[in-house]
Simulated assay, not measured.
Amino acid sequence: MIELLSGPFSGRIRECASDDCPLVFVDTSRPGARRWCAMERCGNRHKLRALRARRATDA
């Protein structure tokens, strides 16, 4: 754990952008712009909520 916090990936430790997710992850993506702990988990939920909100305002 100490190696992670002081090593080369220390600047890439992120907190998941989901409101109801307590996870912390290391962003190993090339641009370093990952927002969610996993796309399958929190990313899809966020995108589905946004889609439903857009459809609700279009109707």
Rank of each mutant, 00 (worst) to 15 (best):
R52I: 01
R12V: 00
S10E: 01
R49T: 13
L23N: 15
R54N: 07
R52A: 04
R52H: 11
A50D: 10
G11K: 06
L4M: 07
C21A: 07
A56Y: 04
C42T: 01
I13G: 03
V26R: 02
A59C: 04
F25S: 02
L23V: 12
G43D: 01
R14C: 09
M39Y: 12
S10W: 00
P22M: 05
E3A: 10
R49P: 09
R35G: 08
R45I: 14
A38E: 10
T57R: 07
R45Y: 09
N44E: 15
R30N: 11
C42I: 01
C37A: 09
R54M: 05
A17R: 05
C37W: 13
R55T: 02
R55V: 04
R55Q: 12
C16N: 03
R54L: 06
R30E: 15
N44K: 14
T57H: 08
A38N: 04
G7W: 04
F9L: 10
R35A: 13
G43Q: 03
D58I: 02
N44S: 14
V24T: 13
R12A: 07
G11L: 02
E3W: 08
R52G: 02
T28H: 06
C37L: 04
A53T: 08
A17T: 06
A50W: 11
S10G: 00
S6Y: 13
R14M: 10
E40L: 13
D19T: 15
R45Q: 14
H46N: 15
D58H: 05
P22I: 04
R14T: 07
A53Q: 12
A50H: 13
R55N: 08
E3I: 05
I13C: 01
S18V: 02
L48K: 12
P31Q: 11
L4W: 01
R14E: 13
